[in-house]
Design a protein around this nucleic acid. Structure first.
Lengths: 216, 216
DNA sequence: TGTACATCAGTGAACGCGCGTTCACTGATGTAC
DNA sequence: TGTACATCAGTGAACGCGCGTTCACTGATGTAC
């Protein structure tokens, strides 16, 4: 049986993912599930905010690095040689997106409780946790934007576009991810939907670029 | 001074939009702000769930019809004649999107409390309210999908794409809308961002269509 | 038009309960000499 | 190697408080005859 600190965090994770949002849980409620005296809480944390923030940061750090790999690894498979024809490149990009979506959604499944808990707080009741989770979403999006910029050399003129696409994709994945976890029977459909939506954005960005070139 | 029922709803709206999520408010807390005895609550509602659901449905019905107009009105300005050249059509579509985004975000401002309250519940702590608000988002998205299908004649082959774009846009607007309300100094930037993101999806869908035609 | 009654939105007091937090205490583990 | 002390994670009892809910009551408005 591990230390009380971890048991409290585990208990909160279970409660938050199966009942209500983290911010609405009670200290006694969590201690009860952890099998500890309500008091033990104060041996490890200053108060509830301290506890919840610690938890978000701890979960967030793990998720962030894993998610980055979900996208980076398939992306590196896309050949960057200028000799390859456009058709092949597009096809490879499509496969990379499919692989990334699959890895990400599998990662959602493997860390179901952490994701549900986090996503609930993005627009949740506590300003403190809202800020923390939104910063997490933003940091994941900016990881993705960096990787898109440095690992791929995309013919996109408007520099704002890549970070925006990264943010849009990240946010949209929170919606799709929750559906994916809550409605297992729609998993295949949701994977395809995510893939299609991302390709749409990519195609749009390239089309917009061509359009710009045509004009200038 | 209006009836107690409306005063309770108004009080909850103020509390939910300025403090915490609707689901986390207390019955006594709301009655206090409404200047009523906690008891009066039971004269109008069965329990808290009944109250919150009534509120979401009442607000939702209003928002849904207004939002529909925000998109439908500018959309009808896009000429559908086959004689117009592609360049003009694109430019008109772009103006329509800009107008729609502007109207929608203005509508967010004018109904700030209602939007903040609703959006907080989309991923919130109460399963009941989560379901109700998600249904609202879905219904707004399907309004948009219908209007896109019937008011415009788009050259898009894949029938799944329009509803998906409508849903993506609607969901993304919840994120952008909250930022718009909470960070007034970024309003212009956010409008442009929303517009660009929607055009990206549109361009993407058209490019995908062309690609399909090429292949088949 | 007047009277009797029903309905309805509101009040105030009281209930039992679970909450966060504090207090004084315990026993195990680590550390200094 | 032993001993004395400090630190640390835990307990149990108690506190005051605000909560949701119930009860019996009030006064205004509507309605039947």
């Amino acid at each position: 049986m591990g230390g009380g600190r971890d048991r409290l965090i585990q208990a909160a994770l279970i409660l938050a993912s199966t009942t209500r949002s983290l911010a609405s849980l009670g200290l006694r409620e969590i201690a009860r599930v952890a099998g500890l005296n309500p008091n033990t809480f104060y041996r490890h944390f200053e108060n509830f905010d301290d506890f919840a923030l610690t938890m978000i940061h701890q979960l967030g750090a793990g998720l962030r690095t894993s998610v980055r790999d979900c996208w980076r690894v398939p992306m590196r498979e896309i050949p960057q040689s200028q000799t390859a024809d456009l058709g092949t490149t597009v096809k490879r990009a499509q496969q990379a997106v499919r692989a990334s979506v699959e890895l990400t959604l599998d990662h959602f499944s493997a860390n179901k409780n952490a994701y549900i808990t986090g996503i609930r707080e993005i627009h949740g009741s506590s300003p403190l946790l809202r800020k923390a989770t939104q910063e997490l979403v933003n940091s994941i999006a900016s990881d993705l934007a960096s990787d898109l910029t440095f690992d791929l050399t995309l013919p996109i003129t408007d520099k704002k576009v890549i970070p925006e696409i990264a943010l849009t994709v990240t946010r949209q994945m929170t919606f799709i991810g929750l559906e994916y976890l809550e409605e297992p029977e729609r998993r295949e459909e949701l994977k395809e939907q995510a893939e299609r939506f991302i390709l749409l954005l990519g195609w749009g960005a390239l089309a917009m670029h061509k359009d710009d070139e045509g004009k200038i």
